[in-house]
Amino acid sequence: MIPGNFAYHRPADVAAAARLLQEHGDEAQLLAGGHSLIPMMKLRMAQPSHLIDLQDIAGLKGISRDGARLVIGAMTTQHELIGDALVAAAVPLLREAALQIADPQVRYVGTIGGNVANGDPGNDMPGVMQCLDASFELTGPGGTREVAARAFYEAAFTTARAEDEILTRIIVPIPKPGSGYAYLKQKRKIGDYATAAAAVLLAVESGRCTSAAIAMTNLAATPVFTEAAGAALVGTTLDEAAVGAAVAAMLAAIDPATDNRGPVEFKKHVAGLMLRRAIAEAAGRAGRGTA
């Protein structure tokens, strides 16, 4: 479990990182917290010749509010995210999800940018970002563009990010006050990826659901945002029939694979359970002014 040889770069700003990335093309890989990339390198499943470490780029850190949007620097660690008062108040779903990632040691170094850029279907943040309708700011030679999380994931480890682009910021629309939220994840133990997980964000007015977004983790090659599942809840009282319809819509959208966590049938069963429990949790929180 020893990586292949590579040259190590540590640029001080985004421009320098971008230049290195351009210069070395597909031979280069960006290094954030390293908690997905380094294990892959140790298994020699990733063999970059150039490693561009982003940790010295101060501009990639930090969390701020920009009107109705929360802006998170890509190099913000999960630990920083968890401890941030703004996040806790404005988008508590993010904090709830971050707390379910790995363990404190991993969260001290693992970054939000690495988590969403990685493209591993096991990562928790991509589904959460889709649920929140976040978008990712990508900086490349041609400048900066924003791509919606819901359009970012193409296949396992394949995203809309071009090879010479750096994911610089994550932009999260702040949910309406009173929105209900939940991230429910079943895993085998601390530090494990999800057997199945569900992210739910919904709003309830006068007992009726007025909006709902649902995304699932580790149940297909990409995170699964299912518009139909959310739509099944809107306009309902979140009664059993509506929840059943949402679960059915979700099950039609996922495509889990058998692995050590269990066979497909089990994954689907747990996906349904997680979604049901997440909807119930979110509904219970809705309207309590937590968002």
Partner: peptide, 8 residues
């Protein structure tokens, strides 16, 4: 007795 076997 992991999760999926108990479920089964």
């Amino acid at each position: 007795h992991d999760h999926w076997r108990i479920w089964r």
